[in-house]
């Protein structure tokens, strides 16, 4: 029995349907590959001495982690793709990943969550707005862009309204006190569009389950701008 477990800190990441990207920071490069795997390249050294010394390659369901040290531990200069795996690769399951890799896994997970929160899963064009339900479900973020310039963002933590004039309000959950008539209309419409997106998501997901092939029906776009 482990007193600490990775699952107490983070859920297995999910990178299904996310588009490829490669993003570097000071000491690492995190990528979503076209296979939907997530790759972390850890860098050591600076300038011409900079090398990719360690690679974590995480399956798109987050459960399988391949770890290797390129060029027999000497590393390779940073390239535009991760160095390929040598023969001696350590393969771990999410449940038995050694603690020294947890922080790196959590970092990859945080990045994936950020991308999911910005990736539309359901896009609905209504009479007044484009409503997007994002991939970070359950309780996914919602972004409603009104054709007149207004905007609403809903997350589990806050609701932000931007009126067409540019004036904005942020509410930390709970009641929406002191809203003017214009903002009330925006919120009401956003709420309805959000509900419709959730219903569409559930209907499409049910159809998707009936199919044997693992072919995703998402993202979906419903309607068009009037």
């Amino acid at each position: 029995y482990q007193m600490n477990a990775l699952c107490d800190k983070v859920s297995p990441l999910r990178a299904h349907r996310l588009k490829p990207i490669r993003q570097r920071t000071k000491n690492a490069v995190v990528s979503i590959l076209d296979t939907e795997e997530v790759c972390m390249e850890l860098l050591k050294g600076s300038g011409a001495q900079e090398r990719v010394k360690e690679v974590l390659r995480i399956s798109c369901d987050g459960y399988t982690i391949h770890i290797y040290h390129p060029n027999e531990g000497r590393g390779f200069p940073l390239d535009d793709r991760p160095p390929s795996a040598p023969e001696d690769v350590y393969v771990y399951h999410f449940d038995n990943l050694p603690e020294k890799f947890w922080k790196k896994y959590q970092y990859a997970s945080k990045f994936v969550h950020l991308v999911r929160s910005k990736t539309p899963k359901v896009t609905l064009y209504t009479k007044y707005a484009k409503c997007m339900l994002m991939e970070n479900g359950p309780k996914a973020d919602v972004e409603v862009l009104f054709y007149d310039g207004g905007k609403i963002n809903k997350t589990t933590e806050f609701l932000r309204i931007v009126e067409k004039s540019g004036k904005s309000y942020t509410f930390d959950g709970g009641k929406l006190n002191g809203l003017n008539e214009e903002a009330k209309i925006y919120v009401e419409h956003a709420h309805k569009a959000h509900q419709t997106c959730l219903e569409l998501e559930s209907t499409i997901a049910a159809q998707e389950k009936r199919k044997e092939k693992q072919l995703s029906f998402f993202p979906i776009i419903i309607g068009r701008r009037p």
Partner: peptide, 26 residues
């Protein structure tokens, strides 16, 4: 291991996010 997730935000990431959104009201 100096992994700072805040560093991830930059212009390149913003333009990637914009590409994810279906056209019409970007």
């Amino acid at each position: 291991d100096d992994l700072d997730a805040e560093e991830l935000y930059d212009d390149r990431l913003e333009s990637y996010f914009k590409q994810l959104v279906p056209p019409g009201m970007q």
